[in-house]
Amino acid sequence: MIEVRDLVKHYRGGDGGTVRAVDGVSFAVQPGEMVGLLGANGAGKTTTLRVLATLLRPTAGSARVGGCDAVTDPVGVRRRLGYVSATTGVPDRLTPREILDSFGRLHGLPEPARAARVERLIGQLGLATCADRPAGRLSSGQRQRVSVGRALVHDPPALVLDEPTSALDVIGACDLLDLLATLRAEGRAILLSTHRLHEIEHRCDRFVVIHGGRVVAAGTRAELVGAGGDLEDAFFAAVAGAGVP
């Protein structure tokens, strides 16, 4: 469902030089699978996800969602992908119901299917008690749920989340990950990036570790961790062994 092949992304640095943010990354996420994209700050996670979300144009390689290429068919990718970025916010002066409804309109959902979809998401995301309150008055957890709801309003088969739990407390993060597990069970392909490894260690089906813009390790938890230790140890070992600055 999500396929990244030999992806390269360079951009101009502050000093006029070239920064190789992503340098030949490849991986795939199948329907009903949740993959964790792991890496330190600046490893290239966000750039990779932004290319997948059609917000950045790749320098080389390809990023595809549901068979649609992010460069040649960006609208097709957007119809098949829900995206929640690390800095995603919600409009303060609109209510969750209005936000979901407006994105439903944007995706061309007709009435009454749109209203039904919005009501279902409000129930599924636990937003019923605050659905008509301006988003500016919601808690961080509730706002993040609205963000996820907005990404799901067009019922996409794939979901990409960039550090979705970074602004949440332990309970909020746990609730969100439970929700993602439910979405995976519905058959969606989910790719999420994080550097809080302990939160997703036992929730993701597979992991891709990137460092310095390259994939330095990939596999299931068992494949990465081996007989002893935990995911964090495996992550440090992969990064240290990569020899990439």
């Binding site: 995603t88 919600v90 995706h107 067009h154």
Partner: peptide, 14 residues
Amino acid sequence: ERGTIETLLMAPCS
């Protein structure tokens, strides 16, 4: 500033 521009750019339109 609100962090909503990326979600808007993800809309299926130009």
